[in-house]
Design a protein around this nucleic acid. Sequence first.
DNA 1: CGCGCAAAGTTGACAGCGTAAAGTTTAACT
DNA 2: AGTTAAACTTTACGCTGTCAACTTTGCGCG
Lengths: 199, 199
Amino acid sequence: MTKPAPKTKHHHGNLRQALIEAGLSLLEEGGIEALSLRKCAARAGVSHAAPAHHFDGLPGLTKAIGEEGFRVFTAYLQGYIAEHTDPREKLRALCRGYLQFGLDHAGLLKVIFGAGLAAYVDDKRGDADAYQVLRACCAPFIPAGENSQIVEIQVWSLIHGFTLLYISGEFGAPPPAIPDGPFDQVMGLLDRVGTAPAP
Amino acid sequence: MTKPAPKTKHHHGNLRQALIEAGLSLLEEGGIEALSLRKCAARAGVSHAAPAHHFDGLPGLTKAIGEEGFRVFTAYLQGYIAEHTDPREKLRALCRGYLQFGLDHAGLLKVIFGAGLAAYVDDKRGDADAYQVLRACCAPFIPAGENSQIVEIQVWSLIHGFTLLYISGEFGAPPPAIPDGPFDQVMGLLDRVGTAPAP
DNA sequence: CGCGCAAAGTTGACAGCGTAAAGTTTAACT
DNA sequence: AGTTAAACTTTACGCTGTCAACTTTGCGCG
């Protein structure tokens, strides 16, 4: 399948990517508990010490997996907001994509936010990463002359907290498909974002 | 200090509690990474297999530590809301206590929410646990005839997400004391909780 | 009163983990 | 063709959780 890197292929031919994909599949199958350096190596068909030549230990491999996962995460958000034009619906769709990513890839979400998101954000890529997508969706709701970060942090905190609590079962066993009613009700708080406070 | 359990003291005299407290101190010193069954045993002065007689392995010890931590967490929330009577300020104080607990005991917070909060909630204790405190603080803002859970979930999600993102450094390195301005601005979203949607 | 028995704690072993050092293969480049 | 460095393997070490077997302790019951 994916072989776009003909740089060096002494023995294996594009290990590194094979290790990352092994890690991703381990993550899907057994959650974050199941992720281990040695199992990634075994699944890629190399010895347990081979990854050391491509990553800086387990933290390095985990970071690389997180970077890959962050791209998937970004694609989720972009895919969900794509079908909407109204700013409010767009913001709501962003949150739905956030939650759905958490449901589909719970282990990956923990990897991404386990090391601090800053490790994956590449400022040079412009609006191609998840935080820039959030930023763009929040922009229409920023009151004139106010700190833009406030709204972003409000939205991010709300959906991030909801997603983590939801997938860890705090609101009851989560069905794989998001029930529209309750989700929309909770996210109704977003309708107040950026508006004047109630009297 | 704490010796309220003279049940059995064959050799050690209240191991179990000693193991829990060892785990708590390990958590404070080295975060969740530093918590291990063998280190707890060593710190309590017993062999590495001793904990098996008191807990069901590491998961069992972790759960017990989480229960203890949950009591501290509850005390934080109660302490912070105690000094306020206005419902809005009470709700804000609750959130401040939540965040401050996360700052003071980051490892403990991860233990508590790592296994699902439901493991620690004891319904019989009435309003003495953290969720009941949250419930009580949300009660004044529930619109007549509406599902009370919605507001609770909104508040919980917002402060939970904010706390986790804050302590993991997503908003920049967190100072140990919460800066009032930004915190109040973000929590300003709470002022819209339970009010009619904006036109 | 003393005996037994179960609870509490110790010791030793095992598999799995991450990591480091040393050795071997392989490919590329002069 | 020979050298050199990267890629990979092998071996080993310390740490982890868990299990089984053994020793000690002290309570309760005949």
